[in-house]
Nucleic acid binder design. Structure first.
Length: 309
DNA sequence: GTCCAGGATGGGT
DNA sequence: ACCCATCATGGA
């Protein structure tokens, strides 16, 4: 439990201008059907969750105002004095989460001329490549999701969060934070024994936490490398991080628009489905396909995933 | 019971 | 550079 939270006053809120080609309800529906949707609650078109920035905890409620602005109500805070920096970082986190600072008009232009994407961008109009801004969470979720079905992966993540994360109770509902890498770095494998993932995955997650705890691995350092190929090389040095995980993190956390997980089983099945193939497409076929969507590979993959629902 | 899941690793040819 | 068993469990 998180102690010492301050009421912030109901009038305290942040306003974030929404870009064009953004439909709040479509993004909300995406969040609702995620397998790892227990880090936020959605009721009456409001998203309620904990956001941690600058070492402080903020309990916020996000809603849309005429699909033109996001209104972020600050309900509780670990600090009695919320600074402009805090507000800026919260807005930045949410903008990053929903990928608000990206002009996707040229992706839509491209997609409308494409026989595979045309239908997907119509039925999911206004959907953003919703990300995982926190690097530790993104890496853990990828590792947990390796080679197991998503429903099971979601259960493992929930068990992990509810074992090692922090929570608050608000109006009878629990809200959780993702466990901190600092806490996980200090654990032994035995302390994860109740979570039914492979022993290797437990080692991977603790190892990643330790790399982050000793400051060898940070989001800033990775982004500082610039070239996504270089970042992939750096990420795959980490035990448990292969090409798929590196691509996944580059796409959903570091937000390189050209990177997508080419080995992803879900993506392969999605392509098979939308192209009505009898067999799974080969890697070369996928490369050729995505070459047409150059500079928007991440969005193309993200929208293709939606065809699986 | 069988096969597949948002893969990665270490060992072997 | 490719090939393969192994991991650990749940879903379909």
């Amino acid at each position: 439990m998180i102690a010492n939270l301050y009421e912030t006053g109901y009038k305290d809120h942040i306003s974030i201008k929404l870009p064009t080609e953004f439909e709040y309800k479509v993004n909300l529906n995406f969040l609702k059907r995620q397998r790892d949707n227990f880090l936020y609650q959605i009721e009456q078109e409001k998203i309620t969750r904990i956001i941690t920035v600058d070492g402080e905890t903020f309990f916020v409620q996000i809603s849309s105002h005429n699909n033109a602005y996001l209104t972020v109500k600050l309900l509780l805070s670990s600090t009695p004095t919320i600074t402009e920096k805090h507000r800026h970082l919260i807005a930045q986190f949410i903008s990053d989460w929903f990928d608000l600072n990206r002009d996707i008009s040229s992706f839509y232009k491209l997609a409308k001329e494409d026989c595979l994407l045309r239908h997907l961008v119509t039925s999911n109009y206004g959907l953003r490549n919703i990300g995982i801004p926190d690097l530790f969470e993104a890496l853990c979720w990828a590792v947990i999701g390796q080679q197991v079905n998503l429903k099971f992966a979601g259960r493992l993540k929930r068990e992990f969060v509810e074992s090692f994360g922090k929570s608050i109770e608000y109006n009878g509902t629990s809200y959780w934070t993702f466990p901190s890498y600092k806490k996980i770095a200090a654990l032994s494998k035995q302390q994860l024994s109740h979570i039914k993932m492979t022993e290797r995955k437990k080692e991977y997650i603790i190892g990643i936490a330790q790399e982050m705890a000793n400051n060898k691995l940070t989001k800033e350092k990775l982004i500082g490398l610039g070239d996504p190929k270089l970042i992939e090389k750096e990420l795959t040095k980490i035990h448990g991080v292969g090409p798929w995980t590196a691509h996944y993190v580059l796409m959903r956390c570091l937000r390189y628009p050209t990177v997508f997980p080419i080995d992803d089983v879900g993506l392969i099945n999605a392509i098979k489905h939308v192209k009505k193939l009898k067999q799974k497409p080969t890697k070369q076929q996928i490369e050729e396909l995505f070459y047409q969507w150059k500079n928007w590979e991440g969005y193309a993959a993200f929208y293709l995933w939606q065809s699986l629902y």
